[in-house]
Design a protein around this nucleic acid. Structure first.
Lengths: 154, 154
DNA sequence: CTTGGTTATTTCGCAACACAAAATAACATG
DNA sequence: CATGTTATTTTGTGTTGCGAAATAACCAAG
């Protein structure tokens, strides 16, 4: 079999695993995958504005508003106007969602981490190199090739 | 930075690239990603029943019915009762959707293929090995471990 | 052949997500 | 202050997804 086919098949397996894992994880903590992702993003930075979340998720601001509405109604986050710019609303986690995050068993990442740590040093290095190579081929960015490309993300 | 973090970041880049590519591809041919995926599945086998598609996509039969409805209304597929079992309805492509598939430029796969072919032999081998390793760690299956596994896809 | 159980698909009602366009409010600069 | 820009929300619409019930066809006794 062709090496390219092997790559594409492996990639599909990876995508599928990560997708179905996302569903399980979210269900186990009582929210949808998207809602959980928002919570995670807010948790990373302490608090985040709606627009920042939208950019981060590559999604329209209106979509984030709707998701925040549901999270707020469920008591997972609260809105509070920014002190510095009253147009923006900071999204902050409640105690409740912080507890959710604490006991959220990110099984896939943890399994990956333990499996990965069990590998030989050279194999770990190989995997990192390969994944970064593949990522660069797929998303077009190439850390080695200077800053000319990619206005995106702004 | 930790090697595990590097892996997870690269994986996220890969997921994101594949996701946004799916959207672009589908838009360029005038349907949604899910609709395009259904068309692809039907194309692979010539014709497929609703139930088979649902299983393949890990989705409820009712969902497939709705998608087929739209594809049919748009003239991309047609339903026809199976000769052997009149409970099942075979989904078959129309000329129109076959043309769509022909000129669908699967840019991501092609870019990946050309990039990949440009690599040194040893690097190709490394990437295949790494991706398969990662896939095995993520989806639990392990292709190296004999033929016991892989009932899936049926 | 009929009865009862199974299977394939559809219909129905509901929820989540995603977007564009318009509305609102606050900021910033002339 | 007038104008334009920015951040968010509202409104309306479309797609995807599900479960439960309905429909239709198959199949295996009896």
């Amino acid at each position: 079999m062709d090496r390219i086919d092997s790559c594409l098949i492996a990639l599909r397996r990876i995508l599928r695993a990560s997708e179905s894992h996302g569903k399980e994880l979210a269900q186990s903590v009582g929210m949808t995958p998207v809602q959980f992702r928002v919570i995670q993003i807010v948790a990373e930075t302490g608090s985040s504005t709606a627009g920042a979340i939208a950019k981060r998720m590559h999604v329209a601001p209106a979509t984030v508003t709707a998701i925040i509405d549901k999270l707020e109604r469920a008591g997972h986050v609260s809105r509070q106007q920014s002190q510095t710019d009253r147009r923006q609303t900071d999204i902050v986690l409640t105690e409740q969602s912080r507890r959710v995050l604490d006991r959220a068993p990110d099984a896939l990442q943890q399994k990956f981490a333990t499996d990965f740590e069990g590998l030989e040093d050279w194999e770990q290095a190989m995997i990192v190199a390969a994944l970064e190579r593949v990522a660069a081929m797929m998303d077009g960015t190439n850390a080695d090739r200077g800053a000319v490309l990619y206005p995106g993300e702004l």
